[in-house]
């Protein structure tokens, strides 16, 4: 997922991790140099990913758009806040 808006310097990545942990979702989130936030999230169910997207939109700062693509992959064991890219 890619989140645009006022999403850096507002505790956004911590919010994303908090939400992912509540849903049992693993993956990672990081700041991008273009002032957006990107994340990759792994879940068994599409519903949990929908819920995560909904929760992310309620985060700190201001989300102007959230775009996502979905595919299959091997999940990591936890959700981590990664280095900026």
């Amino acid at each position: 997922m890619k989140v645009q808006g006022i999403v850096q310097g507002v505790g956004f990545r911590w919010h994303v991790k908090n939400c992912a942990d509540q849903l049992g979702i693993t993956g990672s989130v990081w700041n991008c140099h273009d002032r957006t936030v990107e994340l990759i999230a792994f879940s068994e169910t599409e519903e949990d990913l929908d819920a995560l997207a909904e929760m992310i939109k309620r985060g700190p700062g201001r989300v102007s758009s959230l775009t996502e693509t979905r595919s299959e992959g091997r999940p990591p064991t936890e959700f981590e806040i990664g280095l900026s890219r």
């Binding site: 908090n18 929760m55 309620r58």
Partner: peptide, 8 residues
């Protein structure tokens, strides 16, 4: 405040 929507 942990981000849960009302429905959840």
């Amino acid at each position: 405040v942990s981000g849960q929507p009302k429905e959840m």
